[in-house]
């Protein structure tokens, strides 16, 4: 696709707090993500990878520098406009699923559609479709407490894709799962990326998970330390296990 890239970070900094407690979560990060990519964002704790995901996901705005989403300067938008961007273009998957308790799977999946003003009958139809896309149509009437962790994460993915977003942001989506479920979820994400052309940005600290992606970006001290692109086609994966353990206590 020609035109502006989907995501472009230019010298983005993000500073939390003031004075002595000041934390520079991002310190001049540059990153460009094109349509159809499946990007793993890696890095040690405090490297800025989560902040990067928040900025890219329009949940947070840069302190300085520019974040262009499809050429639009996100830094110049107000909170409602950010919400509008998230509503129409983005989907989110979290480590802890964040499903509404005591609410059935299909109702959870319907939630984003409520904010889009979709009629009740169409909501139900689209939510059921999304659930069947993740292979859970038989569990539609179950509440999260009645589902396994892997199933809950698949419901969460259904919720993220029910709006047909352009980009899916996943924050450690496999972090709470055992290895067999991790594989399930990663295969599901790869499938969504390939068949639906949904761009996926996934924060993870597990190199195994990064292997499923088309590109790996490694953060260190608030900047991009290494990037497997250019050459995304050959699926070169930067192994960064040693860097990772350094940041942990």
């Amino acid at each position: 696709m020609s035109g502006p890239p989907l995501v472009e970070l230019r010298d983005v900094t993000k500073v939390y707090g003031q004075g002595e407690s000041e934390v520079r979560a991002l310190a001049g990060a540059n990153l460009r993500i094109d349509d159809g990519e499946f990007v793993a964002v890696m890095g040690a704790s405090g490297s800025g990878k989560s902040t990067c995901l928040n900025v890219v996901g329009c949940l947070d705005q840069p302190t300085s520098g520019a974040y262009l989403f499809r050429g639009v300067d996100v830094g110049a938008l107000d909170l409602d406009q950010l919400a509008l961007l998230r509503k129409h273009y983005l989907g989110f998957v979290f480590q802890s699923y964040n499903l509404l308790a005591r609410t059935t799977a299909v109702e959870n999946v319907e939630l984003p559609l409520i904010y889009r003003g979709v009629s009740a009958s169409e909501r139900r139809a689209r939510a059921m479709q999304a659930l069947s896309d993740v292979g859970l149509e038989s569990r539609a009437k179950h509440t999260p407490a009645e589902l396994s962790g892997g199933q809950q994460q698949r419901v969460a993915i259904a919720r993220a894709i029910v709006t047909a977003p352009q980009m899916l942001l996943a924050d450690e989506p496999t972090g709470n799962l055992d290895s067999a479920r991790k594989v399930d979820i990663m295969n599901l994400l790869v499938d969504l990326n390939r068949t639906r052309k949904i761009t996926i940005v996934m924060v993870t600290h597990e190199p195994d998970m990064a292997e499923y992606t088309t590109r790996t970006v490694l953060f260190k001290d608030g900047v991009v330390e290494s990037d497997s692109k250019p050459g995304a086609e050959d699926r070169t994966v930067v192994r960064s296990g040693s860097d990772q353990s350094k940041g942990l206590p």
Binding site: D80, A83, R86, K87, H88, G91, N98, L100, P112, R116
Partner: peptide, 16 residues
């Protein structure tokens, strides 16, 4: 709080 965070993340405006 988490539910509210989720609603905001999936595009609910503060006013909603």
């Amino acid at each position: 709080t988490r539910e509210i965070g989720l609603r905001l993340a999936i595009g609910a405006r503060g006013s909603e």
